[in-house]
């Protein structure tokens, strides 16, 4: 197990999550270094999505703990985690489809645009709202979406919707950004652009952890990769080491033989 000198920003210890009789995650531990781009992969049904959902507060762990910057956050609400700086994205185009592009990102500024009830009512929140607006537009510009600010989301092509999803999360000013299958369903060109964006987000001081199916993107992007199988840790290490690890190849081959999906690049 690779363990850098500095303290991990995110740490999962002995995590177990059961659904009825099914054990989806079984005594799983791993940690994410500050400033890293960390990939969590595994064949279908390995438990990576469940792990992701426990870290992001959607499920409570059945056993084990999750630490964020040394603080036990197991079982806390997603909104409380976001307030601490742990923000997740969603698969596909989970957006406020009925809103304009800008309003989506404005909702993302929820935490940054604080004001009391009365000042909302009286309109004295104008200052903080104008700031939120500007920040939202900056975030859109970062993703190259500023021209589309007033478009309804439903008019956006799929690739733009995926980027908007990330813009909404980034507007919440995360310290750690959790990406749920950010490359799935993207064409190579979109994947390339998205990878560049993820790198730029990291350069902005945000730690990135992602769950992904697309092995090519994961290998080229991540500093560290954790591979899960059957709800537990299989291998962890740098992309080259993981790529050539016989256990990983076997796990993916087994899975590929079973369902024809997932391939090691």
């Amino acid at each position: 197990m690779t363990m850098q000198g500095e303290r991990p920003v995110l740490e999962v210890r002995g995590l177990t999550r059961r659904f009825g009789g099914l054990v989806a995650v079984d005594h799983f531990s791993f940690s994410v270094r500050e400033g890293a781009i960390h990939g969590l992969i595994g064949p279908n049904g390995a438990g990576k999505t469940t792990t992701f959902n426990v870290i992001s507060g959607f499920y409570a762990p059945s056993a084990g703990r999750v630490f964020f910057r040394g603080l036990d956050i197991s079982g806390r609400k997603t909104s409380a985690l976001a307030a601490m700086g742990l923000v997740r994205t969603f698969q596909g185009s989970t957006l406020f489809q009925e809103f304009s592009v800008l309003d989506n990102v404005r909702v993302g500024r929820h935490l940054g645009a604080r004001a009391g009830f009365l000042s909302r009512l009286l309109g004295t929140d104008r200052q903080s709202e104008r700031e939120a607006d500007e920040r939202a537009r900056e975030t859109l510009a970062f993703f190259g979406l500023e021209e589309l600010a007033d478009e309804p989301v439903s008019n956006l092509p799929h690739g733009h919707q995926r980027m908007l999803g990330m813009a909404v999360a980034l507007a919440a000013e995360p310290k750690v950004l959790l990406l749920d299958e950010p490359f799935t369903g993207m064409n190579p060109e979109e994947t390339r652009r998205m990878m560049a964006l993820v790198r730029r987000i990291r350069e902005g001081g945000v730690t990135v952890m992602l769950v992904e199916h697309d092995m090519q993107a994961v290998m080229n992007l991540c500093d560290t990769i954790t591979v899960m199988n059957f709800g537990a840790l299989l291998v962890e290490g740098a992309p080259e080491a993981v790529r050539n690890d016989p256990a990983v190849i076997e796990a993916y081959l087994g899975s590929a033989a079973a369902d024809g999906a997932g391939h090691v690049a």
Partner: peptide, 30 residues
């Protein structure tokens, strides 16, 4: 007052919860 509430960020947040409560939750909306 009701109109002001709806047109403010509070109203935006209400709508956001209606359409995608998990997404709203993920950016810190309780």
């Amino acid at each position: 007052v009701l109109y002001r509430i709806e047109r403010s960020r509070i109203g935006l947040t209400f709508h956001a919860i209606h359409w995608q409560d998990r997404l709203a939750e993920s950016v810190g909306v309780d």
